[in-house]
Write a protein that binds this DNA or RNA. Structure first.
Length: 260
DNA sequence: ATGACCGGGGCGCCCGGA
């Protein structure tokens, strides 16, 4: 059978619940990892997804951040926050949740943006990626394992529409890529998706400046898999069509199919 | 298509996003 795993920065579950429900009905994913809920755990519209056959584990905090996992193939051993997750302004933010779904241990993460390389939020971003690597290093590698979500890092210069336009900004620095590399050195490999249009499988296009019509995108939503998951991956793509139209998130869903 | 951002919280010529 095919087990379809999806990661999607939904940019407010409140604003996007109808669109998410319609996408789920049309695309029949088994596991959906969400980021940027922008609401509390209590306010997550779980019932309508329960009614559609999905168990829901949400980890919200209000106005910002928030992550969740929806699954119709089991949702066990839920963990909220990384084991040694760094705080920002003395607060642990809702940026990580894990569960076991159909034998796959999976993390849905929303890595801090970083804002600016001189901002304290940038150091926080690097520390968060470090904590993620520490978390991954302690995993049980005998069964399938994935970390997916919005990493807010372009892995290579080819993962952005114009590397020169982002010189001196976050998302493309050597330090961010080194932190991502440290995570992958725990023996995690990126599942590289197909593009449905153009050459690069971007996952984010800013709402501003007609970035989507002009295809000025970034590839920052990723799925990292351990070897026992990677061997089961059959396909992966970014559903850029979901970025179209009124009421779209600024991120498109990353879809990974497996024969688990 | 000839465009010119969006969501939250709550009315701040706000903040944050990437």
């Amino acid at each position: 059978m095919t087990v379809r795993i999806v990661s999607w920065n939904i940019n407010s579950i409140t604003a996007r619940a109808d669109r998410l429900a319609a996408w789920i009905e049309a695309n029949t994913p088994d596991v959906v990892c969400l980021q940027e809920l922008k609401t509390t755990t209590e306010a997550f519209p779980a019932q309508r997804f329960n009614d559609a056959g999905y168990a829901v584990a949400a980890h919200g905090q209000g106005r910002w951040n928030g992550v969740a996992i929806l699954s119709r193939v089991g949702l066990d051993h839920i963990q909220r926050d990384l084991t040694d997750q760094p705080a920002f302004n003395n607060a642990t933010e809702a940026r990580a949740i894990a569960a076991t779904c159909n034998g796959v241990r999976i993390w849905s993460v929303y890595v801090p943006n970083g804002r600016d390389i001189t901002d304290p939020h940038y150091e926080y971003k690097l520390n968060f990626l470090g904590a993620l690597a520490a978390e991954a290093a302690n995993r049980d590698d005998s069964s399938p394992y994935a970390i997916t979500g919005d990493f807010n890092v372009c892995p290579t210069d080819d993962d952005i529409y114009d590397i020169d336009a982002w010189e001196g900004t976050t998302h493309t620095t050597d330090a961010e890529r080194a932190a991502l590399n440290e995570l992958q050195e725990t023996n995690l490999t990126e599942v590289y998706p197909r593009a449905l249009k153009y050459d690069q499988p971007f996952t984010f296009w800013d709402y501003r400046n007609l970035d989507f019509p002009k295809n000025r995108g970034l590839r920052i939503d990723l799925l990292l898999a351990n070897p026992s998951l990677m061997t089961h991956v059959t396909d992966a793509y970014v559903d850029r069509n979901e970025r179209k139209g009124k009421g779209a998130s600024d991120h498109a869903p990353l879809v990974v199919d497996t024969n688990l």
